[in-house]
Design a binder for these strands. Structure first.
Lengths: 201, 201
DNA sequence: ATGACGAGTCGCAACGTCTCGTCTTGACAG
DNA sequence: CTGTCAAGACGAGACGTTGCGACTCGTCAT
């Protein structure tokens, strides 16, 4: 009787091999083509070892992403909210262009059809959202941001354009994309007094 | 010899039944669970009749979406760009909440793994983007919009938040969501002279 | 007669479950 | 300290199931 396995006897080596194999395959052949059987074969592992510890390939890849993130710092706080947001969003934009972007894209897809994965993926996403909201709340108190701005909405206004361009339109973005977006949304789309100088993407 | 079938002999009745069955299934059980075999069964049609005319289920659903859109008008032009954008984006937000939203979500997923579908889905999306850009260009000439705003970016700033909230975060949105977004992005996130009154989502 | 149609069969690929025999580990006996 | 032994995680892979996309029928309309 061992319906739930004993984590203390788990093979760390297999765990690492599975995470690495899953990520590599996803980067090389795409999320959809990355099958559990292929992950097992590449990792030199039995399929059951994957199913014993993870409910799906999405869960495997999400753990991989979590490890990457945990090795990273969150939002910086230099006192200049626009600069901090630019640093953060530019880092995200850069990540989208790397192989990790392919993994993240796959997870966002999985979240649309797999309810279990959806909860975990959204939780992962909400960590970033919460970090951003915390930084924005501080900016609000510092008078750098309109006091009446809803923070969830503000996060969506800042990250939404990037996701729209990358995930939906799949268009190539100039390096300064997020700088120009931030200039536009902070100064406003309507013409007028003109704050910080602005774009032409 | 009939490698490419003769459209003039095509059964319009089967076509309609297939489109309706595909859309109904997608709304009822979701995109992933909607199989070609299920569509055929529901439509009372042979599988081959689907494969004869469409390359994939994504193509079927895209044709369905195209029909819906063709029965609709594009952007209105009342002379007030914010009002026009509000009307358009609110219509989109409403659509997301209906069963058509489930179909559209499915197509956006398919575009991530099926290269052929991706081209068609993006083309469909670009029609809406182009409409929006045209209206924005007019606003720019009318002095309603900053002259230096990149239009692709502006479209992403306006629609990005909605997609981010709906597709990625799957959070429930208040009816006035897009009104508040437009107020924020037109007037700007930074505090100051305060243009139009603004939100608290 | 041509060819689209409904119906259904085919081999294939991946799913998730399962059953092997092997190897590691911790508990206990000597 | 060392030898024995049961528990259980492991690699490997067989299993039935599902949906794919190509195909083959006999029917029916043009």
């Amino acid at each position: 009787m061992s319906r739930q396995p004993d984590p203390s006897r788990r093979s760390e080596q297999s765990r690492q091999a599975i995470l690495a194999a899953a990520a590599d395959l996803c980067m090389e052949i795409g999320y959809a083509a990355t099958t559990v059987e292929a992950i097992a074969a590449r990792a030199g592992v039995g399929k059951q070892t994957i199913y014993r510890w993870w409910p799906s390939k999405a869960a495997v890849l999400l753990e991989y992403m979590r490890r990457i993130r945990d090795a990273r710092l969150g939002f910086a706080d230099t006192g200049d909210v626009r600069a901090d947001l630019l640093a953060q969003t530019t880092a995200v934009q850069t990540l989208f262009g790397t192989n990790l972007g392919a993994v993240w894209r796959g997870l966002l897809i999985a979240a649309q059809s797999d309810d279990v994965a959806a909860g975990d993926v959204r939780a992962f996403l909400e960590v970033a959202v919460t970090e951003a909201k915390a930084r924005l709340a501080k900016a609000q108190q510092a008078g750098e941001l309109r006091a009446d701005a809803d923070l969830d909405m503000t996060v969506e206004i800042i990250f939404g354009p990037l996701y729209h361009a990358w995930l939906l339109r799949a268009r190539p973005l100039p390096e300064a994309y997020m700088k120009d977006v931030l200039d536009l949304v902070f100064d406003g789309l309507k013409p007028g007094e003109g704050g910080t100088a602005a774009p032409q993407g």
